[in-house]
């Protein structure tokens, strides 16, 4: 029995693996030529800082998709955590405690998604949509019906400022946080048995179960990770804006979806993975930066998001149920 080693190195395969990367490079080249401000290091670092929020959120979504689910609630959960952390900080809760509580709330949202989609076996799109809608309620509850928590993040918060706006040398702290989170996420997803089992459950649930993998538990955990990371991205969002705002996270959902699906076409074709997701998120950030530099009006971003999701999904070959 001979393996078809040489087939694997075929040209078609190269395009599949690196085609998206090439496309991204072309876009960057175009931007660099047409908008000189684009390649300024300060601008590039700024892109990275902006990417951090989407990047972390998309890492969470990567887990849900890898395990065979989906998570439409990530944007909403992030918005909830901006509001909740602001609410806590305004009430003089110590920063670290506030951060932990918010992450725990994110985990709880993920747990609920797991309950709906892994336990009750509701289709992930509908189950997580319910969570997405539900967490809008608590946001307004905390603001008392307004759109923001009055008082920003309360008294001066050095840690939050450092996370959201700080720099280490030329590098924004937020970008470093994203890279750290991504590194951990990558190790868990691709180096541990748990990550293997997530991929297995997402690849073929029946096959995974015949090998003794508890696919329900694995999927449930993936939703919890997704919830925690969504909450984390919300914290970064709050730190950057210096306030908690209702429904601020929803547009990021699209960016995260696009990042995950673009990412799944990069290097390891065909399945979502963290490195690809980060590449996808950075690409989305560059595109947005370019659109801003080209003075695209606000509605243009919505159209762009929709089109990017079509393109990413079509590229990744993610097909109908």
């Amino acid at each position: 029995m001979k393996s078809n080693e040489n087939v694997r190195r075929g040209a078609g395969d190269l395009i599949a693996r690196y085609g998206t990367l090439g496309l991204m490079a072309l876009v960057c080249l175009f931007l660099a030529i047409s908008v000189p401000a684009f390649i300024q290091p300060s601008n590039l670092f700024d892109v990275l800082r902006q990417v951090a929020v989407v990047g972390i959120m998309a890492c969470g979504l990567t887990y849900a998709v890898a395990a065979g689910g989906f998570d439409l609630s990530v944007g909403s959960v992030a918005a909830l955590s901006t509001v909740f952390v602001a609410w806590l900080l305004v009430r003089n809760v110590p920063v670290l405690a506030a951060l932990l509580v918010v992450l725990a709330v994110g985990a709880a949202c993920g747990w609920a998604n797991g309950l709906f989609c892994a336990r009750l076996r509701i289709v992930p799109w509908v189950g997580t949509l319910a969570t997405m809608l539900a967490v809008v309620g608590p946001q307004f509850m905390l603001t008392g019906g307004g759109s923001q928590i009055p008082g920003g993040l309360g008294p001066k918060q050095p840690l939050m400022d450092f996370l959201g706006k700080g720099f280490l040398g030329p590098v924004p702290v937020a970008a470093l946080v994203m890279l750290l989170v991504a590194a951990v996420a990558e190790i868990v997803l691709s180096k541990t048995a748990l990550g293997q089992h997530m991929y297995a459950a997402g690849g073929d649930r029946v096959a995974a179960e015949t090998c003794g993998i508890d696919s329900r538990r694995v999927l449930w955990l993936a939703y919890i990770f997704s919830g925690v990371l969504a909450a984390g991205s919300g914290l970064l969002m709050a730190a950057r804006m210096g306030l908690g705002q209702v429904r601020i996270g929803e547009p990021y959902l699209m960016d995260a979806i696009a990042a995950v699906f673009l990412g799944s076409t990069v290097i390891k074709e065909g399945r979502p993975h963290i490195l690809g997701t980060i590449v996808g998120a950075i690409f989305m950030g560059i595109m947005f930066n370019g659109l801003t530099l080209l003075h695209t009006p606000y509605w243009g971003f919505y159209l762009f998001r929709g089109i990017m999701v079509f393109a990413a999904v079509a590229l990744s070959g993610f097909r109908s149920r």
Partner: peptide, 14 residues
């Protein structure tokens, strides 16, 4: 699958 040799922290010993 389902029986990966595991080391510390659940890391697979590839």
């Amino acid at each position: 699958l389902g029986a990966e040799p595991r080391g510390k922290l659940g890391l697979v010993r590839w």
